[in-house]
Amino acid sequence: MNLIDRMANLDRRWIFLMMGLAVGIPIIVIGITGKTLPEEPTPLAQAAFDVLDDLEPGSRILMAWDFDPASEGELGPMATSFIRQCAQKGHRMYFIALWPVGAQMIRSSTSRVIGGYYPDLVYGEDWVDLGFKAGNEAVIKTIVTDFAQYFPTDARGTSVDAIPMMEGISSLANFDAIVNASAGYPGSKEWVLYAATPLKKPLIVGCTGVQAPQMYPYVPNQVQGLLGAIKGAAEYESVVNKWVRSEQMLDALESGGITEPASSELAARFAANPSEASTWTTEAAAAAMSPEAKTRLIELASAPTPGIFLEAQRRMGPQLVAHLLMIGLIIAGNAIFFATRRRGGSQ
């Protein structure tokens, strides 16, 4: 048996092992060094961010979490960043799930982000967990015209009448935008067909790589922002992280006594180049700032982004190596295929 034959009959477990190493080793390396690859947002990720950013603070956002632990690797980081942007912006978030396990996804993402980083948000006033409902697209179809029919209580068993932020919500038409993290059916397609198209509501979709190609035809008429696979998550994550940092710096600058136009300009500048903040505070213009505000600004500029907001960007590392492996495997497989075929033909 020569090399080509041996390669052609290669035990697939060797390929499994290669894949395991291609994913596992970068995870350990990135985990230890803490370095991630740079991300440039594509227009779709930026559009997703802009839709939520353009809404007035206090807007009502329906957050439909239609995924399960199996897809959490891709959609978890998107869910995290969606909540982070809405929480930072001051939007009111309404979580629902059409997947039985989606209720657990709502709990884990809200407890990680809201519980960990926005503890001042009040349940029932700033966000509410309405839980899971069975019925797939029938749920969407019903709540387009009547919300209470399907959701008499929230997930904790409180009547919706007793929840302050549910006041004035009688149907999906009362929401300002829909954010959907979807791993299949029912999911983004159903939200497009049954809610966004008839109601003409802004819809932002974060979906798995599998679904993403089918969602492209809906952009930009029926879907305004589309995050596809972990790459979309990483891009959106980096946009949100940058914005949150500049928002926080803006607060620090404003509370330190810098006038509004100057502070927004400065915040944008420091967000792009955080190390500048520490040198800038020694300048004359910074003299007006209180020492506490100065310290806060430098802290913000030099503080690392919390690990949970870098999840997608970290996963781009194993992604890169594994993609290269996949390409290598396809080329190798074809090379062997053609080599055997040529030999077979000459016989």
Partner: peptide
């Protein structure tokens, strides 16, 4: 870190 509602 909520900004004051612009509604107000």
């Amino acid at each position: 870190m909520k900004r004051p509602s612009s509604l107000l």
